[in-house]
Design a protein around this nucleic acid. Structure first.
Lengths: 148, 148
DNA sequence: CGACATGGTTATGCAAAATAACTATTTTGT
DNA sequence: ACAAAATAGTTATTTTGCATAACCATGTCG
């Protein structure tokens, strides 16, 4: 007698790439949240910190644009990081409406530690994929993103 | 003079697959939401309807498990579809705690129309990818999902 | 100078997602 | 057979993410 494998209840949905994308994303992000918890960071605060570390002096409006976050929502995110002295708002003398954002030493250090953890997380969750697979995946995702 | 391409402000983040995944997912899902609007369906109600059409008699608890939705949150989703007479709750005589869910004729019809639209949407948003690419992507996403 | 645009903020609303606690029914263990 | 535990569904509540409108301060342009 052959082993009869009954199809999952979402078999039809699995024919949609969008559904697969969402499922993979859920696994990935809930797992990543756990990785970031020890640093008291969420995905969005990690992303924000990353962009500030890599782009000293970046403005909130640029950040909002970059991370696809509404400006009003970015305020509390920046507040949170600033209150923890991980980043600083410095008034821009040339345009006194704007702030330049800068990571503090503590912010840079935390970011480096968190980055190591995130990289470890990625290699762990992607352990079933080869380097080549990951490049392929990245390229395919980029093409979807550009399809906008 | 060579054209100088300055790196995007999220260049570092783009080295993370998780970030790419999220960005691609955002494009995909906000676009899909527009596709579903004419049918007055959201991603989750479409998914629910799909599972009910494909699995007549499925229970809410199975549905919640399948779609990775908390049971309490599924109640209002099922309510919504039931109020629109797209699905029906029928008491299970064998286990009178449970309901079996069934799509009505109208529900099945709407689902078929919506499915056509979603399939069209997918071919459109994935138009830059070959059949082979899509299969590859699907397989890679499945492996991430299983990495749980 | 006055009109308009831009950077940041506040307030607010809405929907998604999670948790606790409850009723009704079924299953389990002795 | 019966008490205890488990399961199906529900209600109520909270938290969070995401979006919009309206506002202040500053800068730009006619």
């Amino acid at each position: 007698m052959t082993t009869q494998m009954k199809p999952p209840l979402d078999a039809e949905l699995r024919s949609f790439v969008g559904y697969r994308l969402k499922r993979a994303m859920n696994v990935f992000s809930s797992d990543l949240a756990i990785t970031l918890r020890p640093f008291d960071l969420r995905m969005i605060t990690f992303s924000t910190l990353s962009s500030v570390v890599s782009n000293p002096g970046i403005r909130q409006s640029q950040l909002a644009e970059t991370l696809a976050v509404e400006r009003p929502n970015l305020v509390s995110i920046v507040d949170e990081l600033a209150n923890r002295d991980l980043i600083e708002r410095k008034r821009d003398d040339a345009d006194r409406r704007a702030f330049g954002l800068f990571a503090t030493e503590a912010g840079t250090a935390l970011f480096q530690d968190a980055t190591r953890a995130v990289m470890q997380h990625e290699t762990q969750i992607l352990s079933a994929l080869s380097e080549q697979d990951i490049e392929t995946l990245t390229a395919l995702l980029a093409r979807i993103e550009q399809a906008k």
